[in-house]
Amino acid sequence: MLPLNEPTTAPVTREALTPDVDALLNSAEAEGVYRDSRECGGLLLLAGLLLLAPPEPKPKKG
């Protein structure tokens, strides 16, 4: 039977932290986040065409 007061996590040591220190110091360059102006322009054109499109003809009565 395990003792009830046994700690569930080991204390953090310098040895355990060393890889994380190195990783934080030598982080890779972040991927660029660009706004694609052509894509934005295409979406704007599509939205404009939808707004300017004539309404569908209503069915004639009779």
Partner: peptide, 16 residues
């Protein structure tokens, strides 16, 4: 939780 994974989770926050 392992020792290393625990360290990895707390160090960035401590730096911040």
């Amino acid at each position: 939780m392992s020792d290393a994974s625990g360290a990895a989770s707390v160090l960035p926050d401590a730096v911040q």
